[in-house]
Simulated assay, not measured.
Amino acid sequence: MGPDPDSPLCSAKGCRADAVWVLAWNNPKLHTPERRKTWLTCEEHREHLSAFLGVRGFLKDVVKLEDWESPGGAGAPAG
């Protein structure tokens, strides 16, 4: 069975798998400390993309997509 067309997809180049993880990151040379950009990743690419961001000092957090999207989760707006 293929990926769900309504589900977010992995950010890895060429990957069409459903995203499971959110990698929150920022580039301190470009972004304010509180700014978070995100890459979505499947289980298979989580370690590779985390390492790519980590060696550059960009990776800030790794969160399950379901937790990121939940009310009060890391990706929810502060209220």
Rank of each mutant, 00 (worst) to 15 (best):
S11Q: 06
A12W: 00
K13W: 00
K13R: 14
K13S: 11
C15H: 03
R16V: 08
V20I: 09
V20S: 11
V20A: 15
W21Y: 15
W21L: 09
V22A: 08
V22G: 08
N26Q: 12
K29P: 06
K29Y: 00
K29S: 06
L30P: 14
T32F: 08
P33R: 11
P33G: 04
R35T: 12
R36N: 05
R36K: 05
T38F: 09
W39C: 08
W39L: 13
L40R: 09
T41G: 08
C42A: 08
E44V: 00
E44I: 00
E44F: 00
H45I: 02
H45P: 06
R46D: 08
E47L: 09
F52C: 12
F52I: 10
G54T: 07
V55F: 14
V55A: 09
G57C: 04
F58N: 03
K60R: 15
K60W: 12
K60T: 07
D61I: 08
D61N: 14
V62E: 12
V62A: 10
E66N: 12
E66Y: 07
E66A: 15
D67I: 07
W68Y: 15
E69W: 15
S70Q: 11
P71R: 10
P71W: 07
G72W: 01
G73Y: 01
G73S: 05
A74T: 12
A74N: 12
A76R: 10
P77E: 09
A78Y: 14
